[in-house]
Design a protein around this nucleic acid. Structure first.
Lengths: 334, 334
DNA sequence: CTGAAAGCGCTTACAG
DNA sequence: CTGAAAGCGCTTACAG
C-alpha cells in the first residue's frame, strides 16, 4: 500500500507537505504542489480514510435507523436522507430496527461504537417513557412519527393535523360513518394514537358520533392484516361509507379487501391514506392521501444533525413537518 | 474521551491486557479480566472503532450502490442485503447512482477511498464495454440485471428465462398480440434488451409473428412514462390482448392507463410484470409477475463479497438467480 | 499470564 | 513556503 510517506520520499518533500496538498491547503508553492500531485498520480496513491478519521475524530458517516427500508415510505425517506447527506459530504449507513423498541435502543447505543458522527433515529418503538434513555452525549436527531418532549432534536410528522384534515375531507365528501384502520392505540405517543386523535377531533367538530365499532385495530402493520380486518368487519355486518387508513401501506390492503367484497370505491365507500407514497397515485382507483413533505423532513433532519455534529448546543428543536392533502379518485364524488 | 490507557491505569494493568479483554482473547487470568471489565463499566469506556479499523485494516463496512432506494425493487433488495450483511457483522452504506454509468464508476472508484471493505454494485448503467474498468484490486460483486463476462463475481437476474416464462404464460392464457413495454434496447446488456430477447423467443416458439409496433420503448423508466406510452399506442389504434412489462414498477403505469382507457384487465387485456414487488399482490387486479428470489440474490451477493474480502481469489463466479412465475388476477382466464 | 514498544497512516500545532 | 515531531487510540509480534 502506498502511503503519504512514499509520496513524500518520491517527491522529495515532507509528509506534511503531501498532506497539505491533499487537503488543498494554501501556502504550498505551485511547483511543489504540481510535483506532489504528479507523484500521487504516478504511484496511484489513495488517502487512507481510516487514518484520517482517527486523526480528525470525524468519520463523515451518519447512521440512519429505520424500521424497514423495504416499506415504501421508509425507502422514499431513506433516499431523501442519502440525497441530503451527500450535500454535506456525509455517507449514510442504514440499519433496520424492525419496529422494535429494543433495536432502536441498540442502534442508539451502538452508534457511538460504530463509526458514525451522528444518528438519525426513526423512532416508532420508543415512547415518551424512554426519554431518559435519550440523554446521550452524541449527536442524534429523532425522526418521529411519535412525539418526544425529550432532550433531542426532533422532526415530527403532522400526525394530528394531517389525520384531522384527511377525515375532514371525507366528511366534506359526504361520509358520515368513517372507519379508522390502524395499529395498537396502547401507547400515548404511537403514530396510530396520534392520528386517531385527529380522526376523533374531526368527527367531534362535525358533530358525528365516534362509534367505537368503526375503529379497526391491527396486530401487525401490514396490508394483509388490514385486508383481513376489513373482511371481518364487513362479514360481521358493519356498515360504513368512508375509511381513514393510518398509512397508504395499510390502505393497500383495505382497498384490496373492498374490491374482494364487491364494495365500490369511491361510490360506496371513500378511502384516504397517509404518507402519499409514490405508488398511491397509480392505484385503481388512485388513492387520496396526506403528503407530509418527505423531502422537507429529510432536509431538516440532516441539517439539524449536521448542526449538532458541528458543535451546536442550543435547546432541542422540535420541527413539525407541514403537509398537503392530495385528493384523488378514492374520495371523488360523482 | 476515555481510552484504553485510562482503563489500564485505573485497573493497574497494561493497555495490552485491556485490549486482550476487549477482544476476549484467552490467556487472561479470570480475576484480571473481571477487574478490567469492572473498570470499563465504571468509566463508561467504549472502544474507538476508527483506531481499531486503522490498526486492523478492516472497517466491517461494505458499500451498496443501487440506482435508487425509493424504487420498491431496490428497497426490498437493500433490506435483504442489510439483513445478510448483519449475519457477517457488516454495516452497509447505501449510495444512489441514479441509473447513470458515471455514478456507477464513481462508486467503484470511491469505494476504496471510503472506508469499505468491499462493494456490491447494482449495475444498470455499466455495460459489457466497461469491462476493463472493472479490473479493480478491491472486493467487488456486481449485482446485475445486466450480463458481464468480466473479471468480477456477478449475481445476475434470470432476465431471459424469466421474460420467456412470462410471455409463455400470456400465450398459454390465450394472448396472441402481446405488447412489450420497456426501456431503451440500444445496449446489448441492458435489462430491457435481455428481457426482450426472452419475449421474442417465447413468441417465436409459439409461432407468433413479432410485430415491431407492439414494442413500446420508454425514455424514462417510470410508471408515468409507461402510462403515456400505452395511451399513445391505444390512441393510435394499436390492438393487443396482452402486455409484458419489463418491471412491476412499469406495470403500475400500464395498468393505470388501461383503466383510464376503459380496457378491462384481465378480460380484454392480460398483464404481467417482472420483480414481484410486494405491493403487486394487493393491486386491483393483482399483478402476475416473475419473482427472481430477491433473498437468494442478496444472500449470494453478500456471501461472494465476504469470500473476496477474506482473500478468496478463485475465478470470477457467475450466479444466475432462479425464479418463479406468480400467476395472479391480471392474467386470469374467466 | 502480562508488559514495553513499535506502528497502522494520517494531521496538527509549533518552528523557522 | 516547508519540516521535524508528536500523537489520534488501538493491536501485534516479541519477550519474559
Amino acid at each position: 500500500m502506498v502511503t503519504i510517506r512514499d509520496i513524500a520520499k518520491a517527491a522529495g518533500v515532507s509528509p506534511m507537505t503531501v498532506s497539505n496538498v491533499l487537503n488543498s491547503r494554501p501556502h504550498v508553492k505551485d511547483s511543489t504542489r504540481a510535483r506532489v500531485l504528479q507523484t500521487i498520480d504516478d504511484l496511484d496513491y489513495r488517502v487512507n480514510i481510516a487514518a484520517r478519521n482517527l486523526r480528525r475524530g470525524k468519520t463523515h458517516t451518519i447512521g440512519l435507523a429505520v424500521p424497514e427500508v423495504d416499506r415504501p415510505y421508509f425507502g422514499e425517506l431513506g433516499a431523501a436522507i442519502i440525497e441530503n447527506g451527500r450535500r454535506h459530504d456525509l455517507n449514510v449507513v442504514i440499519e433496520q430496527t424492525e419496529r422494535s423498541r429494543e433495536n432502536e435502543l441498540t442502534a442508539l447505543a451502538l452508534s457511538r461504537l460504530r463509526m458514525y458522527d451522528g444518528l438519525i433515529l426513526g423512532a416508532v418503538g420508543l415512547g415518551e417513557s424512554d426519554v431518559e434513555l435519550l440523554r446521550v452525549d452524541f449527536p442524534v436527531v429523532i425522526l418521529g412519527e411519535r412525539i418526544f418532549s425529550g432532550p433531542l432534536d426532533h422532526v415530527a410528522m403532522p400526525n394530528d393535523d394531517g389525520a384531522y384534515a384527511a377525515v375532514q375531507h371525507l366528511i366534506e365528501r359526504g361520509c358520515t360513518r368513517i372507519v379508522a384502520v390502524h395499529g395498537s392505540l396502547s401507547h400515548d405517543t404511537d403514530v396510530s394514537t396520534l392520528r386517531h386523535a385527529g380522526y376523533r377531533r374531526a368527527l367531534a367538530e362535525a358533530g358525528i358520533e365516534d362509534d367505537p365499532r368503526l375503529t379497526l385495530t391491527l396486530d401487525v402493520f401490514s396490508p394483509e392484516a388490514a385486508s383481513a380486518a376489513v373482511h371481518q368487519a364487513v362479514d360481521a355486518g358493519l356498515s360504513f361509507d368512508g375509511v381513514f387508513c393510518v398509512t397508504d401501506y395499510v390502505a393497500l390492503g383495505v382497498m384490496r379487501a373492498l374490491a374482494d367484497l364487491g364494495i365500490a370505491v369511491p361510490d360506496d365507500v371513500k378511502v384516504i391514506g397517509f404518507d402519499d407514497v409514490e405508488s398511491s397515485r397509480f392505484l385503481t382507483p388512485s388513492l387520496s392521501s396526506v403528503n407530509p413533505s418527505k423531502d422537507l423532513i429529510a432536509a431538516k433532519a440532516v441539517d439539524l444533525l449536521v448542526d449538532r455534529i458541528n458543535g451546536g448546543s442550543g435547546e432541542a428543536v422540535e420541527f413539525v413537518s407541514p403537509f398537503t392533502l392530495v385528493a384523488r379518485e378514492s374520495t371523488a364524488v360523482r
